[in-house]
């Protein structure tokens, strides 16, 4: 784009003085916190990975206004959310609804933590078995290791 083109763009901008539409103010007072709460769960459709709450885009700003209006009209947050799901599909929810197949995304990490903890418990039990067997421990500590421990003990807290 040449500088001339830019200048054209600039002059175009200043020539027209009509007031552009701006977001309407809500009719009834709606808690901004509720608006954020709903908006934060919805995915901004033009920006892929930001929420409607976070996105600085015009579309997101319009969607926030729609959320505000619907809440002002007496809809509950869940209903407003459902309104968007009905139009955009589950995709618009930033966190999949907890039912059916989607439960996996919640349960699998939980199961992973569980498996990890059980594995560690089993290993620690196995590795401390010798303590319960009353066999003498540390029969052959290598000298370098014991030297290291001694140093650690000397200098440590």
């Amino acid at each position: 784009m040449s500088r001339l083109g830019l200048r054209l763009l600039t002059s175009l901008f200043f020539l027209s003085a009509a007031v552009s539409p701006v977001t309407a103010q809500p009719a009834a007072p709606v808690s901004e916190e509720t608006v954020h709460e709903v908006a934060a769960q919805l995915r901004c459709v033009v920006c892929q990975n930001l929420s409607v709450d976070d996105s600085p885009s015009e579309m997101a700003s319009q969607m926030r206004a729609i959320i505000r209006d619907r809440l002002a009209a007496g809809e509950r947050p869940a209903e407003v959310r459902q309104y968007f799901v009905d139009r955009y599909g589950e995709w618009i929810l930033l966190s999949p609804p907890r039912r059916g197949f989607n439960l996996l995304v919640w349960l699998v990490p939980l199961a992973a933590v569980g498996v990890g903890l059980v594995t560690v418990a089993v290993l620690v039990r196995r590795w401390t078995r010798h303590l319960r067997d009353h066999r003498p421990t540390r029969v052959d500590v290598d000298p370098a290791m014991s030297e290291r421990i001694r140093r650690e003990v000397d200098s440590g807290p």
Binding site: T23, A24, V46, Q62, R87, G89
Partner: peptide, 14 residues
């Protein structure tokens, strides 16, 4: 569509 109401009603992405 000044407020975006129609586009959201139709689930418009872009």
């Amino acid at each position: 569509d000044l407020t975006g109401a129609v586009s959201v009603d139709y689930g418009v992405y872009g």
